[in-house]
Write a protein that binds this DNA or RNA. Structure first.
Lengths: 237, 237
DNA sequence: ATCTTAGTTTGGTCCTACCAAAAATGGAGA
DNA sequence: TCTCCATTTTTGGTAGGACCAAACTAAGAT
């Protein structure tokens, strides 16, 4: 539904062009990574003016199907989850104007990760556990360096998103990281806080290893709630 | 990160225009719902050619900040979650070319809803329960009409997404509905299946009312797994 | 084979022009 | 005074041409 209304939408010369290019990209007729044909060639192919071709390229570019750097030949991109996230990013940013919106986004993250740690507690493999341990070790090693710690912190949570073996989740994680980061980096960091988070991660892993989803969820939740509280007080003070 | 590279991206006349219009929309200087100034006025305001103005409008339109129907004046849209979902829709569609992708998306839906029913079992209010009951009643009333039942089915799950009181979730629900629908409507429907689903919904509600998150999750999961299995067999047969 | 350089392609931007549909206008009729 | 219809004006959509500077190519020099 929605958008395939042929009724009200009479014309728009660029639409057929967009559709066909889109199809050619997805079908592989336009090879991924290869440059798009020159605009002047496309206008001959489609029998359209350069204006129209150009409009189509812009649209496809905004959808992530074409990567167009300023003065270079546009490059065909068969989209993956990351591409989509990237293209979606600018759109989502517009939503995060009020702190309420950021809170909603953060809450959804907490919701997701609660599910993730439950899942982890139930199904984590030896490899998953090993990954988590490695990530936590990296946490510990970076406690004294807040910038580095942030990286390892993100990485730890990233491991959680990879456990379900569904590429959508890592993409979501990238989204959260990128979208929340701007509202995050005002947060005060300190070795003390880093150590706190490190221990929280340890506790989460512990619950996962004991195959206790309720405990894992509880620890994760209090961990993330504390983080938010920290940010919130930073905002309002 | 990503995209604010001032390094490689030399110029692009439309970018400042996009940025300023974006800011004016978000700040409310350009009133939500009001028509955008005429292109010829904008080119005077920004001292840019119509080409550039037009490019900016297209870009903003693709981002959902402007709603431009074919021959009408573009309308300013201060984006809400729904707008974002709409704008994201076309992008996401490109990912769902293979059934594996659809499966991934569906799995993520199951993941989310498992969390939702747990949440419901723990925190659902009287009103939530009432909404669920009403939705289920609508299910029952529509059992004989598969088209109508589908609507009420979606509506039932929609109630779950509203329980956390976070506008992001209903938006996600809309996304799932819209994105999965095309791959869904090939599914065979029948009053028998409708009745099955109706009973599953009843069971979910039952578990929620008994405040038993594990049971609620289990019932929900088997409900959705069965639905997928049904679709899958339809595909491969 | 590598570097330099002259020539060609190509995207970015501006401009002019025209059309058809929308919106604004204004007047006729109730 | 209000409604409705016809006319004018505005406005978005598309076409085509022109020019520039940067990117690309190919030929020639080292």
């Amino acid at each position: 539904m929605t958008d395939i209304h042929l009724d009200s939408a009479k014309s728009r010369a660029a639409d057929p062009v967009i559709a066909q290019l889109e199809q050619q990209i997805l079908s592989g007729k336009l090879v991924n990574g290869a440059p798009l044909p020159a605009e002047r060639d496309l206008m001959e192919d489609f029998g359209a003016s350069r204006t129209v071709i150009r409009e189509a390229i812009i649209a496809l570019s905004n959808r992530g199907l074409i990567e167009s750097k300023p003065r270079y030949r546009p490059i065909v991109r068969k989209p993956d989850y990351e591409t989509v996230l990237n293209a979606t990013g600018k759109i989502v940013q517009n939503l995060l104007t009020e702190t309420g919106d950021v809170k909603n986004l953060y809450d959804s993250r907490v919701f997701i990760e609660r599910g993730l740690v439950r899942e982890a507690a139930l199904t984590a493999t030896k490899d998953n556990i090993a990954d988590l341990k490695a990530a936590i070790a990296a946490n510990e090693a970076a406690i004294s360096n807040s910038v580095a710690f942030y990286e390892t912190d993100v990485a730890f949570h990233g491991v959680l998103y990879r456990i379900p073996n569904n590429p959508i989740f890592p993409a979501i994680h990238m989204g959260y990281t990128a979208w929340l980061a701007p509202h995050w980096d005002k947060m005060l960091r300190s070795p003390e806080r880093n150590e706190l988070n490190f221990h929280a991660h340890e506790a989460i892993l512990g619950a996962i290893m004991e195959r206790d989803p309720d405990a894992a969820e509880a620890v994760l939740k209090s961990h993330l709630d504390a983080a938010w509280e920290h940010v919130r007080t930073t905002f309002t003070s």
